[in-house]
Design a protein around this nucleic acid. Structure first.
Lengths: 183, 183
DNA sequence: AGCCTACATTCCACTGTTGACATGTCGCCA
DNA sequence: TGGCGACATGTCAACAGTGGAATGTAGGCT
């Protein structure tokens, strides 16, 4: 249940409404911990029941501004320092790799090439984003930049791995047909 | 819904019971697509209803051997070649990075160091596994090795990033207190 | 004044995931 | 022959995530 900690984390730098948080989730946290409207409002309710947040003010359109409480801060701090991050992965991209054997050589190669290209696109998009951010007035926080760098390195690793895997597959699946195929 | 495709993929190389599949999930697929008993038996039922698998034989202890059907093979092939892998991430490790600001410098450094060490341990474990596998008689399939290599590169990337991030944090958060702290 | 857009929340149905519990059988070995 | 452990499946409640619909308000523009 990390959604609750994502919410607490966002509220730790100031009060916000569900609607405000939603927009942050859509932009800043979209690639790290996506959340939908239904999930978010429900979680805010639970967080309020648990005493980790409270309604600090009510605004114009039924707007409720939530603020983190001391208990909430304590919970956030506990999660950050004491709770071991789960190492789990669940990657359908990688799952497919296990079953590449059911495809013929060309299809398998095509899959890996697709992964390499997709990772490369992502890498270029993030490079561009970093440049924009570096020049901007109000850049991401230092920690946002750390996360951005992670995304960059992850994409590069995936691209390089997929390119390597394609060559590797080629090397193993066509050991001596080389000359025939090349000729 | 990739569980269904994981099951089809496993059955594509031969019939198996739910119990057999469960053991494979616990060992081979544990880090890629974990699944529990309840999930697995339920999915096999749904797969049978949908005509993607069928009960090929019944054994001693109520054992049912499931075999993939032509429709199942077609579905698997479709998923492998036509369905775009989701690029999503949801990493609580990275989520924490966004909120490192609520920690003091030492706690934040400690978090990143923990990540680096954890990634390094994982990297060493996988290196060892690769050596064992390379010498063994019945090694993982080629595709298993591809996945192993991914795990290795991923762990190395995470380790290097966490080490870099720790230095980066240090550089930014203590710009001129250096001499004071060092002295 | 009327309309449109952005603001803002709530509810619902469905699917996926987890963990625990219940039930029973077969084969081995002390 | 009694019991234990591995084999084997099934069910349940709870939680997490997805996507969409319903409802209504405030403010700005024409």
């Amino acid at each position: 249940m990390s959604l609750r900690h994502a919410v607490l984390g966002l509220l730790s730098s100031g009060p916000a409404s569900g609607y405000d948080l939603l927009k942050i989730f859509e932009v800043s946290l979209a690639n790290v911990w996506p959340a939908t409207q239904s999930q978010l409002y429900a979680e805010l309710g639970r967080l309020a029941d648990a005493g980790f947040v409270e309604v600090a003010a009510e605004g114009p359109r039924g707007r409720k501004e939530y603020a983190i409480t001391d208990a909430g801060r304590a919970e956030l701090h506990h999660w950050l320092t004491e709770v071991e991050p789960t190492g789990f992965n669940r990657s359908d991209m990688l799952l497919r790799v296990f079953f590449l054997g059911v495809l013929d050589a060309e299809e398998a190669r095509s899959y890996l090439r697709g992964r390499a290209e997709s990772a490369d696109r992502r890498h270029r998009a993030l490079t561009e984003l970093r440049e924009v951010v570096a020049q901007g007035d109000d850049p991401l926080s230092v920690h946002g930049l750390l996360a951005l760098e992670w995304g960059l390195r992850f994409a590069a690793t995936q691209r390089d791995w997929a390119e390597w895997a394609e060559r590797e597959l080629d090397r193993i699946r066509t050991p001596e047909d080389r000359r025939a195929t090349a000729g």
